[in-house]
């Protein structure tokens, strides 16, 4: 028997708009500690939009407007008096396309520490090494830490982005279709890494690949046309979905 774990993040009655267009309708969703929560759904269903709300990256679009509330450990992260910078340090993000900075591998991982005021070089060096190890990239880059990050392969770049995110020790990590632009072998490595990371972190992953959701996640939410159609344990959802639309989607009848 498995114990249900503590809830880290909660979304309550979340409505989201770009200008006057409503993208998300009344989303209620819980994210459990040391779990992988997958968000699936056809393209345009609002899943990527939703995950960006969790660390307030949606604010980059000026016309974006949010109603409802999202909390982290019971405290609101969406109210106006909360600094988004503070939230983003606790809730890290890995993007769809690997986006290392055009700097060296070392500088990429050190960046987050430096902007967060860490000055101690030894501390930074240790943290860079440990983050690269956690991201299973250390052996491949050990001898070329000062090469440009852009010289790495796509899969390595994505693991570098994960290492970069780990370096600031976030509590929650958001993955926005992290394998969308990777080959199968790199995808496999990233998936293994996610399973490893969930021991220490709380993870949310958006994916359009249902097998991936089934392989890595503990909970799954199915989004369709801006609504959360169904949310539950992954094994339940893939074996006996409650909703007809969920079943249609995971059996490949549309999407």
């Amino acid at each position: 028997m498995r114990m249900d774990k503590k809830i880290r993040m909660k979304a309550r009655k979340v409505e989201f708009f770009y200008g006057t267009t409503q993208i998300l309708h009344g989303i209620d969703l819980d994210i459990f500690e040391n779990n992988v929560t997958a968000i699936i759904g056809p393209s345009g269903c609002g899943k990527s939009t939703f995950i960006r709300l969790l660390n307030r990256m949606h604010e980059l679009v000026p016309s974006a407007r949010l109603k409802g509330e999202i909390t982290l450990d019971g405290k609101s992260i969406t109210s106006a008096d909360v600094d988004p910078v503070e939230i983003r340090r606790k809730v890290g993000m890995v993007f769809q396309k690997p986006n290392p900075f055009p700097k060296s591998i070392f500088e990429n991982v050190a960046y987050g520490l430096e902007v967060n005021g860490v000055k101690d070089r030894h501390f930074i060096e240790d943290r860079v090494v440990s983050s690269l190890k956690k991201a299973a990239l250390w052996q491949e880059v050990e001898k070329r830490l000062h090469d440009s990050a852009l010289s790495l392969s796509g899969g390595q770049q994505q693991r570098l982005c994960i290492a970069r995110c780990l370096a600031i020790e976030p509590e929650v990590i958001l993955f926005d279709e992290p394998c969308a632009s990777l080959d199968p072998i790199s995808t496999h490595k990233v998936e293994e890494l996610i399973l490893e990371l969930k021991k220490d972190y709380t993870i949310v992953i958006v994916t359009h690949n249902m097998q991936q959701a089934a392989r890595v996640s503990d909970h799954t939410g199915f989004f369709y046309m801006g609504k959360l159609v169904e949310f539950g344990r992954t094994e339940d959802m893939f074996t006996r979905p409650r909703e007809k639309r969920t079943e249609d989607y995971i059996t490949g009848r549309f999407g």
Binding site: M57, L60, R88, F95, N99, Y111, V115
Partner: peptide, 11 residues
């Protein structure tokens, strides 16, 4: 993407 990555790291 660079900008997003930087912001997501707490800059």
């Amino acid at each position: 993407a660079y900008e997003e990555a930087s912001l997501a790291l707490g800059a």
